[in-house]
Amino acid sequence: MGKYIVGRILNMIPTLLIVAIIVFLITRLLPGNPAAVMLGPQASAADIKALTEELGLNQPLYIQFVDYIGNLLQGDLGNSLTYNKPVIDLILERFPNTVILAVCALIISIVIGVPAGIIAARKQNSIFDYLFTTFSLIGVSMPIFWLGIMLVLFFSVNLGWFPATGMGSMEAGAGDFFSHLILPSIALATIPTAQFARITRSSMLEVISQDYVKTARSKGLSEFIVICKHAFKNALTPLLTVLGLQVSSMLGGAVLTETIFSWPGIGLLIIDAIGKRDFVVVQNMVIFIALIYVVVNLVVDILYKVVNPRIKYSSNKGGS
């Protein structure tokens, strides 16, 4: 197991290096001098020159790249010009808010999606199954920014049950905190819930028709034990794959959800930084999110191995 984990961590390194190269190349695609773009049309030539030198943009490209990688390895993500503080401080300030939102959405999606998928598989071709299939299809097709707006329209504007925007604080009471959390969490949870439900249904259908499940039933075990103890355990592996993918989807979805609900997380920070042309923040936030994604997938891979010890690590993982 230890060898497996070390192998997977080593496997992460080239991926992260490529992520850094891609982000570096994207920011260098910017037409003209990035410093001039960041400072805007009102900036003087002296200001542009000073910022160009501060960001090292006057250096040859390969030196810029070496400096950039060197700084990343030291954890130096640079300073934000518009927020006037180190990017790492901005991340530490905003990331916990995104985590709160994402964890809440993940809990909702697992608590609703997995049991719904199990029931649909148990009652295949029933009315529940048809309704389930319809709702899960609508769920995966849902533009979450639109759903967010509709939730605001219905629950905030019409019913006045929940606040439309912002993040509550625990100091103002748990009620204030959770009332702000509910609508963005539902919006962010919609697609993952549908995905979890669909994958649970299909993997359960595959498992419950197998001989060992029939044997368990014939032994007189209760349906609850058969489903939860025998069938579900073996249907768990595909669910873990979806879990890893959903983390990526949630980090992307957080950009939209946080924008609609003015939730002060990293998604809203990226959109703000783009509006303010603060590319130092954008560049490093994107790398940070990609790092989170890669790390989460590493954890999922390890869980995969725990759930299914027959999986072997192969160093020659050329992709698919």
Binding site: P14, T15, I18, I21, V255, I270, V286, A290, Y293
Partner: peptide
């Protein structure tokens, strides 16, 4: 490897960037 790197970005975030 390059494809792995490109896949490490959430789809919409890559497009936004």
């Amino acid at each position: 490897r390059f494809m792995d790197g490109l896949s490490a970005f959430p789809f919409i975030l890559l497009a936004i960037t």
